[in-house]
Amino acid sequence: MNPPPAPAPRASPIRVLLADDQALVRSGFTLLLDSEEGITVVGQAADGAEAVERALATRPDVVLMDIRMPVLDGIAATARIVSTRGLEHVRVLVLTTYDTDAHVYEALRAGASGFLLKDAGPAELLHAVRVLAAGDALIAPSITRRLIARFAAAGAAAAVGQERLAVLTAREREVVALVGRGMSNEEIGAELFLSPATARTHVSHAMVKLAARDRAQLVVIAYQTGLVGP
């Protein structure tokens, strides 16, 4: 399988905020990110409440957010950041230690744009930061799809129902279902015999109609509404 294409280069550096209660973890990420051209760490936070404060003060493009932190956990901090006026552009990348973390789905539902295991390689982390900064979501890895499926099932009682999908065309429903399965625009295009650009247009229209922040939210909606089954 070919590696995912790199996002287009930016005119200004990607501003990253680190939120983790372990100083050693923050230091390691800072060294890695600051050594990469086009990325700069603009702040650190040792708990979720401080992460919200630092996000307001520094206006980062991406927040690397640990889940388990004191004062305010990463899920609650994510929800506060994405719902705060002036921080609409901020993308949250949730970091977790175990691939069985039951909070991953809740973090995505709270507004995170993706998640990554803490033991991911440097190249994977840097790619994730660039993907989120470009306005996309990190949903493609199979482990992400498996976790979302597992924990979306647990939240099925709170499903919003099929009526939410009434605003979509038949083609847009097909596209959202494929997004829910973790497909990229290129893969969706191949599946439906569309160009990647047309697939992206359908994804964008679906996000607007469903008031989805990004692809991560489309995945959640796909499971909540039953377009994709666990």
Rank of each mutant, 00 (worst) to 15 (best):
L168C: 06
H127Q: 13
A149D: 11
A166R: 14
V160P: 09
T169M: 13
E106K: 09
T169V: 10
P122T: 08
H127A: 11
V175S: 07
N185W: 00
V176E: 02
A112F: 08
L108K: 05
T169E: 10
L132F: 03
L165E: 05
N185F: 06
A120K: 04
A112C: 03
G135A: 10
L125D: 01
G182C: 00
V175L: 10
L108H: 08
G180V: 01
F115T: 02
A107E: 07
T144K: 00
S113H: 02
G182P: 02
V167S: 15
Y105M: 09
F151C: 01
E172K: 08
E163T: 14
E124K: 07
G180Y: 04
M183P: 02
E186R: 13
A137R: 02
A120V: 15
L108R: 02
P122L: 00
Y105I: 00
F115H: 13
L138K: 00
V160H: 13
A159E: 13
V176I: 06
K118M: 04
P122E: 11
L117D: 06
A133G: 04
G182R: 06
G182N: 07
R164M: 13
L117F: 00
M183D: 03
A149T: 09
A152V: 04
K118V: 09
P122V: 00
L126Q: 01
L117T: 11
G121I: 00
A149W: 01
A177S: 15
R181H: 11
L138Q: 02
G135I: 07
A153R: 12
A170W: 09
A170C: 03
V179L: 09
R145V: 15
A123M: 11
A112Q: 03
D119A: 02
E172I: 01
H127E: 10
I148N: 03
R145N: 12
G180S: 06
A110G: 08
A107N: 11
V129H: 05
A107G: 07
V176H: 01
L108S: 00
S142R: 14
A166Q: 12
E163S: 15
A123Q: 14
P141E: 06
R171Y: 02
L132R: 08
R181C: 07
G155Q: 14
V167C: 15
V175W: 04
A156W: 08
A137Y: 05
N185E: 14
G111D: 07
G111H: 05
I143H: 12
A177Y: 06
F115A: 02
I139R: 09
